[in-house]
Design a protein around this nucleic acid. Structure first.
Lengths: 122, 122
DNA sequence: TTGCTATTACGAAAAGCTTCGTATATGTTT
DNA sequence: AAACATATACGAAGCTTTTCGTAATAGCAA
């Protein structure tokens, strides 16, 4: 399940804030860019139809929540990117990401630790 | 410059085979999926208009080549994915990619070496 | 030359994504 | 109850991407 760009924006809000009404999501989105209320509503309705969001119809307004975790989507998107842009080589993607020089020393240490867990005797 | 999915397929062919005619690209694409000749042609014409491909009009048939390197596009796509799906954290993406367990021991060693180059005294 | 084949050019249909206007329903306030 | 505010529902327009049919063009073969 690969979300579209607009869908991913909405998922980000729900992952960070937890279950939200359309109004709450819309307010968050307008922090970053202009987008109409009914646009956000429509997107979330479609995402619900697709099974991407759960919906609680408690009160007058509905409360939506993400049906997949952030890690689920990250796994999907990384897998796709490896296949389509890196000819299946996850390590090439890793090298590219590390090469951008945006990771802090602490993050690099974390990665080192993970490497040791995967293949300790190197 | 973010290529579409279909555009990326074509770029992959050109990166691997070097400059190609539409026929050559089309033959390669049909190895993986069904796609009409004129569909491939149209895509390549559009990519040329966008500046994504160069075109040599030598003979009757034209020869196309990628205008950006594989690394250029990889950098763009990784950067976008980090921003949209990993909240800007390149190291989270790296952890996710490594966690999939698809990298061989040799690849992991390569990554270790790169880590040491970036931040040797850890 | 006349027809056959391979190629590009053009246009438009089909599908998916994004956007929002308008209508409708449901509470809330006076 | 009447007016108002807030929500959802619906439908459609606009844009991008993907697809291919048809026409025009250029070389090749008979």
């Amino acid at each position: 399940m690969k979300p579209t760009d607009a869908e991913l924006e909405i998922l980000q809000v729900l992952w960070q804030k937890g279950p939200c009404t359309v109004r709450q999501v819309h307010e968050e989105l307008t922090q970053n860019r202009e987008i109409g209320y009914t646009t956000a509503l429509k997107l979330m309705q479609i995402m619900h139809e697709k099974g991407l969001l759960d919906r609680m119809e408690d009160s007058r307004s509905h409360t939506y929540s993400a049906n997949l975790t952030e890690e689920d989507i990250q796994r999907t998107l990384v897998g796709r990117l490896v296949d389509t842009a890196f000819r299946g080589s996850a390590s090439k993607l890793v090298m590219q990401a590390l090469g951008q020089g945006k990771a802090s020393r602490e993050e690099l240490d974390e990665i080192r630790q993970l490497l040791n867990q995967i293949n300790p005797d190197a």
